[in-house]
């Protein structure tokens, strides 16, 4: 695992990709931070939450090549024919991507220090937002890994990852849309309006139960819950397992 981790992590810095992604992140976070400074009110947790909306761009860039490149260049043979397990491979690559995201996030830690230096407040809510950031990143990177294992084209894998994250970011919107549209359809079908609304919102509840953003929103207010983190982590594990299975499939697939 360390072997894979080391290679993948360093490879971000052997190519311009790693630097460019970090530069992008630094710039965006810097703009948010400076903007708050100018308003004489710095809420780091808000900055972190705004930065989360860039997962949809950053995560695909980071994960797109993880598995698809190996498949395309034929280097995946190394993983299958050396005395390591596929678990090591998946875990190593996942951790490498996570570490890159951590490196990016150092920017925000610096912002926290600067905020302190300016006499601002860095409280539990800010650390809560940071924790959530990493757990959400873990979930999305796991999804990115899976997308990358599905195909041997970096572009397609990046697109798939983008779509996955888009769907997750839209879950709440989708849920409320579904809620109103389903209930109005049911009302048109002469179902009692309260029952129709109950059905619609029940459906919406099920969908928004899956929304990691909603689950973790209390962290920003300083309420730390284990359950939301467990949700992100277990979903990440699930997607990593799917990735693992996709790689294993290559062995026994008869196509």
């Amino acid at each position: 695992m360390t072997a894979i981790f080391k290679r993948e992590f360093l490879s971000f810095f052997r190519n311009p990709v790693g630097y460019v992604v970090i530069a992008l992140f630094s710039f965006i976070s810097g703009v948010y931070f400076v903007n708050m400074l100018m308003n004489i009110s710095v809420d780091i947790s808000l900055e972190i939450i705004s930065l989360r909306s860039f997962f949809i761009i950053i995560v695909p860039i980071v994960t797109m090549g993880l598995f698809s490149e190996d498949r395309k260049k034929g280097t995946e043979v190394l993983y299958y024919t050396n005395p390591i397990t596929m678990f090591d491979v998946v875990a190593g690559k996942f951790l490498a991507a996570m570490s890159l995201i951590f490196v990016m996030f150092i920017n925000v830690f610096i912002h926290m220090i600067v905020t302190k230096a300016f006499g601002g407040v860095v409280g539990a809510g800010d650390f809560g937002a940071a924790i959530v950031f990493f757990f959400l990143a873990a979930l999305f990177v796991a999804i990115g890994c899976f997308a990358s294992a599905l195909t041997d084209s970096q572009i397609i894998s990046a697109l798939l990852c983008f779509l996955f994250i888009l769907v997750i970011q839209m879950l709440s919107t989708f849920a409320s849309f579904l809620n109103s549209s389903v209930s109005s359809v049911l009302i048109l079908m002469n179902v009692d309006s309260e029952k129709a609304n109950a059905f619609g919102s029940g459906l919406a509840d099920v969908i928004s139960w899956l929304d990691p953003f909603v689950k973790t929103q209390r962290f920003r207010f300083g309420v730390f819950g284990v359950a939301p983190l467990f949700f992100c982590l277990s979903m990440a594990v699930f997607f990593l397992y799917l990735t693992f299975r996709m790689l294993e499939k290559k062995r026994w697939s008869q196509r």
Partner: peptide, 30 residues
């Protein structure tokens, strides 16, 4: 797998690594 060294038809090489980096990586793997 420990006892096998394999050279596939298409050598599995990372083009973005130097030879020594790559061989060190292989040492890690093995």
């Amino acid at each position: 797998k420990k006892d096998i060294g394999y050279l596939p038809e298409q050598p599995p090489l990372y083009n973005d690594m130097t030879v020594i980096e790559f061989l060190n990586f292989m040492c890690d793997l093995k």
